[in-house]
């Protein structure tokens, strides 16, 4: 038990390092897209360690406690992530719903801490983040339900193995409509451009993060990097057939994240009610149609 816990912490650390590097490389890529030189690939590390080295301001115990709870919850969630078929800490217990709901502890901690700062912009940011979550999670969950119903397992590594088995396609091919929904939901989950209403630096001064500086902000940055790692690796495992070895995982991971940031580079931001209406208009409809044709008609490619 204790050993797999340590293993899990290792995975969380791996996720942090991996995503921070990938995000740094992506900053460089978007720099190149805009005909700039772009920052160093390890710029994100520099930013985080700089923040950790500063002297922060604190707005009381709930402000600090929320940050600790946020980072703790996200580390706990990342511990369950199966990176490859063999590189995972808890082989049978990587249930999808653990990720869906344990990640919410981190989110709740961050939201609580942000509201505890007493800044109205932070509360507005939290409100927008929760509203966005209400928008994108329902279609996404419907797609996941379809997948679980088809395969009979909700274990993430089990789903990856199912796709690797001979005769089964990756779900991005097998359920093309569902995959579209999942990509859109992933973009919203990562806070990529058309859906990043809750950060909105020019509008609500970076929303929940408005009062943070120094170590609290640094810890939240670490938390966000790990959150993105969780979301992207879930997508890799659920729709891209997981990974047999670490190299394939890295390739898939990098491809997914880079593709999403490239898409987000050419978009402007939605208003918050537009986000909700958008997700309840098309993705939800597509997800339900996909569910019907896959479960009741059995049309799976």
């Amino acid at each position: 038990m204790m050993l797999s816990m340590l293993y899990g912490v290792g995975i969380a650390f791996f996720g942090f390092v991996l995503h921070t590097s990938v995000a740094g490389i992506n900053r460089k890529i978007s720099g190149r897209l805009q005909k700039r030189y772009g920052p160093k690939w390890y710029q994100e590390f520099l930013d985080i360690f700089k923040l950790l080295s500063k002297r922060a301001t604190s707005h009381g115990w709930i402000f600090d406690f929320g940050v600790i709870m946020a980072l703790g919850g996200i580390i706990a969630t990342a511990m369950f992530i199966p990176v490859t078929n063999n590189f995972l800490a808890f082989p049978d217990f990587d249930n999808f719903f653990i990720f869906a709901y344990l990640i919410a502890v981190g989110m709740l901690g961050m939201a609580m801490s942000a509201s505890g700062s007493g800044n109205p912009l932070a509360s507005i940011g939290v409100m927008r983040a929760l509203t966005t979550m209400l928008a994108y999670d329902i279609p996404y969950m419907v797609v996941i339900v379809t997948i679980i119903k088809l395969t009979g397992t909700s274990s993430i590594s089990g789903l990856a193995l199912y796709q690797q088995a001979a005769g089964n396609n990756w779900f991005i091919v097998a359920l093309p409509l569902g995959a579209i929904v999942a990509v859109l939901a992933l973009m919203a989950g990562l806070g990529k451009k058309p859906f990043e209403t809750y950060i909105a630096p020019a509008e609500i001064a970076s929303g929940p993060l408005v009062e943070y500086g120094g170590k609290q902000l640094g810890m939240l940055f670490i938390m966000m990097e790990i959150t993105h790692f969780i979301e992207v690796s879930l997508f890799v495992n659920l729709f891209l057939g997981g990974a047999e070895n670490i190299f394939i995982f890295l390739v898939k991971y990098f491809a997914v994240y880079t593709a999403l940031s490239l898409i987000s580079n050419v978009y402007a931001r939605f208003k918050i009610d537009q986000v909700v209406l958008f997700f309840y208009k098309w993705p939800l409809l597509i997800a339900i149609v996909q569910g019907f044709i896959a479960i009741y008609l059995g049309w799976v490619i």
Binding site: R27, G31, Q34, K35, R36, Y37, G38, P39, K40, Q43, L46, D47, K50, K54, T57, P201, A202, A205, S206, L209, V210, E211, Y212, G213, L217
Partner: peptide, 22 residues
């Protein structure tokens, strides 16, 4: 900030609030 001189290559960037800024 933009492509002519690209301040981001020095690791600099604009921030929204004084708490975050150096």
């Amino acid at each position: 900030m933009t492509s002519a001189y690209d301040m981001e290559r020095l690791g600099m960037g604009p921030m929204a609030t004084p708490r975050q800024a150096d």
